[in-house]
Simulated scan of single mutants.
Amino acid sequence: MKGTVNILGVPFSKLTLNETVEELTDHIQQEQPKLYHLITANPEITITHQTDKLLQTIVKEADLITPDGIGIVMAAKRKGDPVPERVTGYDLLLRLLERGNKENWSFYFLGTDEETSLKAVQEISSRYPNVVVAGRHHGFFSEGQESGILQGIGHLKPDVLIIAMGAPYTDKWIYKNKANLTNVRVAFGVGGSLDVIAGKVTATPAIWKKLNLEWLHRLLTVPVAKGQKSRWRRQSALPKFFYRAIIRK
């Protein structure tokens, strides 16, 4: 491990995307299963962490927190302790699917709506034929259905549990159910990644990524799920982050 850099109380990993994949691969290939909880954190989550006591506890107990946002990269550089690059949930998912296709890993996909979940899994099975899709379930389940979903995941014992239910809800869900996820090796949230894979949402063009404007592309093009804050309201955390982590000494 290369250590971490502390940004507003959140210890961000200084591993590259490749090194993060190797870290997770080593854990998956261990004989004794143990849940590895990875969090991909952006400036919005970092600001939420300032006042959310439960999220603070979750962050302390997480196994790895990756810098999912150019703001985190800029803040680390401003601090004089840079991270090498962003490690996003989407990029990490694709890389793990690639590795899983070589290693015959099993995945369980939890989240998004039923139609998108089905399309995403079909696309993943087509692109990565050696990946074992252990199971899937949409993210709009009731409290009464939750125990059955957890029992199913425990029975299927997936190497990787991918959750697309939004942050920080995803990480709170993982934390709450750790005792029921002991047969899972790695779990992390991927935001709207399944929507992109399913074709529901257009992937960010390369030029937007090159200009570090991926957040703006999402802001302008990605619809907001029912019950969630508007994306414009959520982005109001960005000025707070830039002031506290980059401008203010």
Rank of each mutant, 00 (worst) to 15 (best):
V10N: 13
K14M: 04
K14H: 00
L17V: 03
N18Y: 08
V21K: 06
E22I: 12
L24Q: 11
T25N: 14
T25L: 14
I28V: 04
I28F: 14
E31A: 15
L35A: 09
H37C: 15
H37M: 10
A41I: 14
N42A: 03
P43M: 01
E44Y: 00
I45Q: 00
T51V: 13
T51G: 08
K53T: 15
L54K: 14
I58C: 00
V59W: 06
A62S: 15
I65A: 08
I65K: 03
D68Q: 10
D68K: 05
G71Y: 00
I72D: 10
V73S: 06
A76N: 06
K77G: 04
R78G: 02
D81V: 10
V83E: 00
E85N: 11
R86M: 11
R86L: 15
T88D: 03
T88N: 02
Y90M: 15
L96T: 06
L97N: 03
R99E: 14
G100N: 13
E103A: 05
N104I: 03
N104K: 10
F107D: 10
E114L: 06
E115L: 07
A120H: 07
V121P: 07
V121R: 15
E123F: 00
I124P: 00
I124D: 00
S125E: 14
S126H: 09
S126R: 11
P129R: 14
P129I: 12
P129K: 13
V132T: 07
V132P: 03
V133S: 11
G139V: 08
G139L: 01
F140A: 12
F140H: 14
S142V: 04
S142A: 15
S142L: 05
S142E: 02
G144K: 13
G144E: 15
G144L: 06
E146M: 04
L150W: 07
Q151V: 02
G152E: 07
L156P: 10
P158T: 12
D159M: 08
D159I: 08
D159Y: 07
L161G: 11
L161W: 03
Y169F: 11
W173M: 13
W173Q: 01
Y175T: 00
N180K: 12
T182I: 08
N183F: 05
F188N: 06
S193A: 15
S193R: 10
D195P: 06
D195S: 10
A198T: 09
A203Q: 04
T204R: 07
P205W: 08
P205T: 07
P205Y: 02
A206D: 02
I207D: 01
W208P: 05
W208T: 09
L211C: 06
N212S: 09
L213T: 03
W215G: 09
L216Q: 01
L216V: 11
H217V: 01
R218I: 09
R218H: 13
R218W: 04
R218Y: 05
R218V: 09
L219G: 03
P223D: 08
A225N: 12
K226D: 11
K226W: 02
W232E: 13
R233M: 15
R233S: 12
R234D: 06
Q235S: 06
Q235W: 13
Q235N: 14
A237C: 12
A237T: 14
F242Q: 08
Y243W: 15
A245F: 11
I247P: 04
I247H: 05
R248T: 07
